[in-house]
């Protein structure tokens, strides 16, 4: 690997396998995230997309292979090393994960207070700037319980970008939002990415929104990268799985039925076990 590509690829996932309790979730995944791009990881529920984010963030250790952030293997780092890497990352959690005992203002101020020794006046300005960027400067006195789902996610986004991270990770940013909030978040992800010069990693299964903003998309299925390419490539893809996913068809390579034995056998088998008992 040359220095040039390492500088280009802010995050790399090389031949990564991960599993727990004997079940392998990922089997040799390779991904590259280019600096300054919005990259999406898509796939059905339960395919370990969120787990990939946790592996990049160093909250989990891969069973095999590695995740590299800025050229450094994440799971080889000490706790301090991982914490140092994480300061360059911001993450938006599925439900926002705002600290319920702190106000909106304090939530956004939290990373600043923890990692900097800035004077209070400076923190005040920074917090209001970040909140302004997500359009919620007026809500800084509210408590998280007083926010709607979309607003909570925007506050969480303001908190994620408080330290001007190089990498912003989004865990299902569109799940459970009304169309307006969805549009707002969608727009924010793209504009913030370009304004901060950051790299965004989106984990999602919402095809329309993700395709609208992503530069590059990885499809994960059965523990491997099933397809990859730009949204336009994938929309026109002839791969059966991608076609089924993008167009939301009920049956296809991903079967409607969970793996099961013979239907008739199952029904008759009940009678047999009754008699046996």
């Amino acid at each position: 690997m040359t220095v040039n590509t390492a500088a280009q690829n802010i995050v790399e996932i090389n031949n990564l396998s991960f599993g727990y309790k004997g079940r392998l979730l990922h089997q040799g995944i390779n991904m590259v995230f280019l600096r300054g791009k919005v990259v999406a990881i898509m796939g059905g529920s339960g395919t370990g997309k969120t787990t990939l984010l946790r592996l990049i963030g160093g909250q989990l250790k891969p069973s095999k292979g590695e995740a590299r952030v800025e050229g450094q293997v994440v799971h080889h780092q000490s706790r301090d090393g991982i914490y140092k890497l994480r300061r360059k990352m911001g993450m938006l959690f599925q439900q926002g994960a705002l600290f319920t005992d702190l106000s909106v203002y304090e939530n956004v101020a939290f990373p600043l207070r923890e990692h900097t020794n800035l004077p209070e006046s400076m923190i005040h300005d920074l917090v209001l700037m970040k909140l302004n960027a997500v359009g919620l400067r007026g809500a800084h006195k509210l408590m998280p319980t007083e926010l709607s789902g979309g607003m909570a996610r925007r506050v969480s986004l303001a908190r994620a970008i408080a330290l001007d991270p190089d990498i912003i990770m989004y865990d299902e940013p569109f799940a459970g939002l009304d169309p307006i909030s969805m549009g707002v978040i969608c727009d924010l992800i793209r504009t913030l990415n370009d304004a901060l010069g950051a790299t965004s990693i989106i984990v999602s299964h919402d095809v329309k929104e993700t395709f609208a903003i992503a530069d590059y998309v990885y499809f994960v299925a059965n523990g491997v990268v099933a397809a990859e390419g730009t949204p336009d490539d994938l929309r026109n893809s002839t791969l059966p799985f991608v076609h089924q996913f993008v167009h939301g068809e009920k049956d296809g390579p991903v079967p409607f039925h969970y793996a099961a034995g013979d239907y008739a056998q199952d029904l008759l088998g009940f009678e047999n076990t009754r008699q046996g008992a």
């Binding site: 909250q59 994960a97 990692h115």
Partner: peptide, 12 residues
Amino acid sequence: TEQLAAMEMMAV
């Protein structure tokens, strides 16, 4: 509600 995980991700 993933608040602890969020804290972890913020290097706290």
